[in-house]
Amino acid sequence: MAEDNQSLGSNRTASDLFRQLEDVDVSADGSPLLRVLICCVYSVVCAAGLLGNLLVFFLLGARQERRTSRLDFFVLNLALTDFQFVLTLPFWAVDTARDFSWPFGDAMCKAVLSVTVMNMYASVFFLTAMSVIRYLALASALPHTCARSSYFSDRCACAVIWTLATVATLPTAVFSTVSHVSGENLCLLKFPGGQDWLAVYHLHKILVGFVVPVCVVSVSYVMLLRLIHTRSMKTSNPRRRSRVTKSVTIVVLSFFLCWMPNHAITLWSVLVKLNAANWDRTYYVVHTYVFPLTVCLAHANSCLNPVIYCLMRPEFRTRLKRLLHRGDTPTVSDRA
């Protein structure tokens, strides 16, 4: 069975976040309940992500708020990436419901898959940049309400992030296609170099999209917490220290826990492709039943970000309450 499936290159693993080819036939043919579950999760994440990110747009969109915070500009860009990301979920839900048979044609396959991957990278890069900015702002003893020159540099930084995300997505845009496999049309990546190039692609995704960002985010927030605990300044009072520590812990844990399972199983598949790990029953079961759930968990990060970066901040909660109860226009002063 392993040899037959490997000779096909890939059958039914379009449930992967990047619709990559896999070595085994891990179709959900025998798991209609799993497909229903995935579709339901995608629908819930899409609805929650749309509402959450639209709320962020509204809270940050008031004229009074546009120049109050450096971090807010990055939060706005993060919300934009997550908003675009969740817009692709209905396509993948339909794909899953049809047993991973893509019904939208080659052009939409390329477009939707590229948008999915680009916004995944952009979201991770903005999360990373925000962790660095929070530390630098506190380390330099600057308030978050900065001079106009900082807004120019922030916009340049955001432009660089979008450019890097676009460049990282180029292999997906070039090699994504609809392939006719085992009587089905699958939206997936098809590299001319075969499994070796696919393994390189996945390793690049793991390193650039997870390992390096996790290291930068972790180091930045550890340094931030050390600074808050040791520096004699207003932000180091016990209540403030406790709130920032809690916020930082949730940020790091949510990012790590949402993405780590997906990247770990992807790394396992890379090792199998490179013959560094054996194809066995455990691998088959994990890719059939566990891997699709890790994809759902990774998608869920896009609706968690607005909660973490806005609704956890007391200023946003206060203004949101006023908005709901009085219909006031919110004014946010970032003290994150």
Rank of each mutant, 00 (worst) to 15 (best):
M1I: 12
N5K: 07
N5L: 07
Q6T: 04
L8A: 05
A14E: 07
A14L: 03
S15T: 09
R19W: 09
R19Y: 12
L21W: 07
D25M: 01
S27Q: 01
D29C: 01
S31P: 01
V36A: 10
L37T: 08
C39N: 02
C40Y: 04
V45E: 13
C46S: 05
C46V: 04
A48D: 01
G52A: 11
L55S: 06
L60Y: 03
L60I: 00
G61S: 00
G61Y: 00
R63L: 04
R63M: 04
R67D: 06
R70N: 05
L71G: 02
D72R: 05
V75P: 02
L78T: 03
L80F: 15
L80V: 11
T81F: 13
D82G: 12
Q84H: 14
L87S: 04
T88W: 07
T88D: 03
P90K: 02
F91S: 06
W92H: 10
D95F: 13
T96G: 04
D99P: 06
P103I: 11
L113C: 15
S114N: 10
S114V: 10
S114W: 10
T116R: 14
V117M: 02
M120N: 12
A122L: 08
S123C: 07
V124H: 01
L127T: 12
T128A: 02
S131K: 00
S131W: 06
Y135P: 09
A139I: 00
S140D: 08
A141S: 10
L142Y: 09
L142K: 15
L142Q: 14
H144C: 09
A147L: 12
S150D: 15
Y151S: 13
C156S: 13
C156Q: 11
C158T: 13
T163N: 02
A165K: 02
V167A: 13
A168G: 11
F175E: 15
S176N: 11
T177D: 03
S179W: 07
H180W: 08
N185T: 09
L186N: 11
L186W: 15
L189T: 01
F191M: 05
G193S: 14
W197K: 07
L198T: 06
V200G: 02
L203A: 05
H204E: 14
H204N: 12
K205T: 15
V208G: 04
V211N: 00
C215K: 03
Y221K: 14
Y221W: 07
L224M: 09
L225H: 09
H229W: 08
M233A: 12
S236L: 02
N237D: 12
N237C: 12
P238K: 05
S242D: 08
V244Q: 08
V244R: 02
K246F: 11
K246C: 10
S247R: 10
I250P: 06
S254R: 09
F255N: 05
F256G: 01
C258P: 04
C258K: 08
N262A: 14
W268S: 12
V270Y: 05
L271T: 01
K273Q: 14
L274F: 06
L274E: 08
A276W: 15
N278G: 06
W279D: 10
W279I: 14
R281P: 04
V290F: 11
P292M: 01
L297G: 03
S302F: 10
C303G: 00
R317G: 10
R319C: 10
R319I: 14
R322Q: 04
H325L: 15
R326I: 00
G327M: 00
P330C: 10
T331Y: 02
A336E: 07
